[in-house]
């Protein structure tokens, strides 16, 4: 067989196999999405947003779970986003010539691949046991720990992509380092950093495991962060596994809503990039 012919066959083989794998992945994804969409749409009614949980058989909703989950995610973002952006800024700027920086960067990257249930267990040990019970702060802490390394990494990467010439031009005008970072580097890297934040939030919006051990769940409308706080994902987990049809339906509906939300966050992230790169 000639060399050329063999190369052609290998080419076709590689193309076929990779196409099949891609197709398999996509098919599975679509089956899941289709299921969630079909079951979710069937079970979805507006009362999911307006009513609080009810005993099986009666019409209930998950209003408090949406609010609780939103509140915990918001607090996680308020803590995780600034620390993450500043940490990434340290890695990319102030610390870029230090030996310690590489180590810190690696450590942060490793934290990204720690299973979220491990983070939940860790927070359980430091914020739940000592405080005597499930509480919202612990849930927010767990989510903040998950988003932190993602934001650190994307921020650092996006800032490193800003051309040195742009920084130098600002320095050459007599700008101080923090001025250069805030007005030129952050500005240039803004769309990338925002996308990182949105994707990090999309990632935790659907997390159950880290909340299971921390803020857990509540069936009552209660947003006191010193106690267990209602959670959408934990509710889905509990309702879906319950024997009651009305609860299972509610779980589907909630899964549908959360899927749409995560999809929306992802698309928003991409639109931000598109808009910023246009001009």
């Amino acid at each position: 067989m000639s060399y050329l012919k063999r190369r052609k066959i290998i080419n076709i083989l590689a193309l076929t196999i990779s196409t099949l794998c891609a197709a398999l992945g996509l098919i599975l994804l679509f089956i899941i999405l289709f299921d969630v969409l079909k079951e979710g749409m069937e079970s979805l009614s507006f009362s999911i947003f307006t009513k609080d949980p009810a005993p099986p058989g009666r019409e209930g909703g998950l209003r408090c779970a949406f609010l609780g989950q939103g509140l915990i995610t918001l607090i996680a973002a308020l803590v995780g986003v600034p620390i993450g952006v500043l940490g990434g800024t340290f890695l990319a700027e102030y610390g870029k010539d230090m030996k310690l920086t590489k180590f810190l960067g690696r450590l942060s990257d490793m934290a990204m691949s720690v299973p979220s249930i491990v983070i939940g267990a860790f927070v359980y040990a430091v914020l739940v046991l000592p405080l005597g019970g499930f509480n919202g702060w612990a849930g927010a802490a767990a989510l903040a720990i998950i988003i932190l390394p993602i934001i650190v990494r994307t921020t650092a990467d996006m800032m490193s992509l800003v051309p040195a010439a742009l920084r130098e031009a600002a320095f050459a005008l007599g700008a101080s380092y923090h001025k250069v970072i805030v007005s030129v580097v952050w500005r240039s890297a803004m769309s990338g950093i925002l996308t990182g934040i949105l994707l990090a939030l999309a990632r935790v919006a659907g997390e159950t495991a880290p909340l299971l051990f921390t803020s857990f769940n509540s069936n009552h409308f209660q947003l006191n962060l010193n106690q267990a706080v209602p959670s959408l994902t934990v509710s889905i987990y509990q309702y879906a596994a319950s024997p009651y049809e009305s609860w299972v339906k509610l779980a589907w509906a909630a899964a549908f809503v959360i899927t749409v939300l995560v999809l929306f966050l992802n698309i928003l992230g991409r639109v931000v990039v598109r808009l910023r790169t246009k001009n």
Binding site: P163, A165, L166, A170, V184
Partner: peptide
């Protein structure tokens, strides 16, 4: 640096 201005090889418009 504010009394010695510098212009670089490639244009450097700030965003």
């Amino acid at each position: 640096r504010s009394s010695l201005g510098m212009v670089f090889q490639k244009p450097t418009p700030f965003p």
